[in-house]
């Protein structure tokens, strides 16, 4: 039997990663982590994660950039803020997870066939374009992007229940002043003169 070694040497670690995440999340408190595990035990999604929140924090501090950004963990964060309100070191763990998601998208190393980052990106795209999100169109785009037609068929009973109770809107929602929204987002992107 071949023994797989999982060793990373110090020189292979990214020494700047810790500072980048601290800055991006606005969370200097990461350095104060005492590895108590309150976050992991509070997390409703921890059982599904490849690295628990506690491990992720330790890995950020040690510079395991690739492992952290390729991990499913940030995408499995349901944003319930349980860890954040309980952390004895006041680390805004949910905000750290958001910072990791943004960085993984920016560096294009997020799990691209995984539906959650795809949904977040699609929803953000729709609403920065129209100012409002439209659930049905979002779901359609999601199944197209993740190449999952079966998922769409599985949604049929739900669609039916929503229609029966008058809770499905097929309308493509949009704000009136899209021009203003475009101007605002352009200014944000470019910077004001």
């Amino acid at each position: 039997m071949e023994i797989q070694e999982k060793i990373k040497y110090e020189e292979e670690l990214d020494k700047n990663f810790f500072d980048e995440i601290k800055e991006k999340s606005g969370c200097d408190e990461i350095s104060q982590c005492i590895q108590c595990g309150t976050c992991s035990s509070s997390c409703p999604m921890a059982v599904y994660m490849d690295y628990s929140p506690r491990k992720i924090i330790a890995m950020i501090k040690s510079g395991f950039k690739d492992e952290v950004l390729k991990s499913f963990t940030p995408w499995l964060c349901a944003s319930c803020y349980s860890c954040q309100v309980r952390c004895p070191s006041n680390i805004k763990i949910t905000d750290v997870m958001y910072a990791l998601k943004r960085k993984a998208i920016k560096e294009k190393i997020y799990p691209s066939r995984f539906s959650i980052p795809v949904m977040d990106k699609e929803m953000h795209k729709i609403l920065t374009k129209n100012g409002r999100s439209s659930e049905v169109w979002l779901m359609l785009n999601l199944f197209l992007k993740t190449r999952n037609p079966l998922g769409l068929i599985k949604m049929a009973p739900l669609g039916l229940s929503l229609m029966k109770t008058g809770r499905m809107s097929l309308k493509k929602e949009s704000i009136k002043n899209k021009k203003q929204l475009r101007k605002l987002l352009k200014a944000v992107k470019e910077g004001t003169k």
């Binding site: 943004r102 998208i105 977040d120 953000h124 609403l127 100012g131 929204l181 987002l185």
Partner: peptide, 25 residues
Amino acid sequence: EDWNCCGATASLSVDKTKAAAINGR
């Protein structure tokens, strides 16, 4: 009048600055 969507957890996961801007509107 003419409110826009808050972006919920999606926009925060993609672009923090734009998320804050659309909510600022």
